[in-house]
Amino acid sequence: MSSNGGVIHDIGFRHYDGPRLGRGYLIRSLYVESLRGCYGLGRSAKSKIMPFLLLTVLVAPAVIIAVVAGVTSMKKLPVDYVGYMFALESAIAIFLAAQAPATVSRDLRFRVMPLYLSRPLSRNDYVAAKYGAMSTALFILIAVPQTVLFIGALLAKMSFWPNAKDWAAGLLGALLLSLVLAGIGLLIASITPRRGFGVAAVITVLLLLSLVSGALASLADINGHPDLAGYFALLNPVSLVQGVLHWLVDADVSYPQPPPGTTGGLVFTAAMFVVIAGCYTLLLARYRKVSAS
């Protein structure tokens, strides 16, 4: 070695005979690192801009609503917890489009995969950790403003139980939407090592699905097929989750028709689980093909 600073005292190489933890620890470590990465923590300053900007976009209105509610002593919040999440769905979609490639495309682009695979971590462990990290990042993004609203409601001395119940419904919605969107986003981003392509592809797919399903639902509704109009909401992952929440916690839907009755609710719920499981399975299949070199 040539770059001897002159002041660094070499105490020699020390061997390690402490514990070497197993796969569970590896998955947890990768999960934590990826979750931090979703918010640009432990990355360059530039990587932090986008996620924190979007987090601000989601939290700021909630803070304003909470303050206004407190100052004007409202009896009830002007928005409900589930409705707030869907009102800002585009910001959530942008977060997904920006951070899904940062979570998986990055490892393909910089060819970090061989380093993971040359360690005891398996391909399936990798998928589990990444899916968990992306879902958690989305959940934090959605749940933080909901919690701000809830705290605001309590500070404004609104009644506790109705708010707590709605807040819990909101968190359930946040969880379901996170799982669905994370699956779709990661699946698309895992195909390309290019970050830019990943961002564009995720946005395009979400936008197209929303446009097509919205247009079809409106057409069906105008032409007198309300049930069909309800089912067209299945095509859009966001309205899919909205439909499930309508059935489960009586949330408002932004589509002309909600899922028809119990059958509709069951169909939407089943479809949602198929999407989550399907994305996960396809991700596993995708990562079986990723080269170890």
Partner: peptide, 16 residues
Amino acid sequence: RQRVGYMPEHDCLPAD
């Protein structure tokens, strides 16, 4: 894989 260390031939370092 737990007991060996592997250094690949290609670049494998995230730039950020």
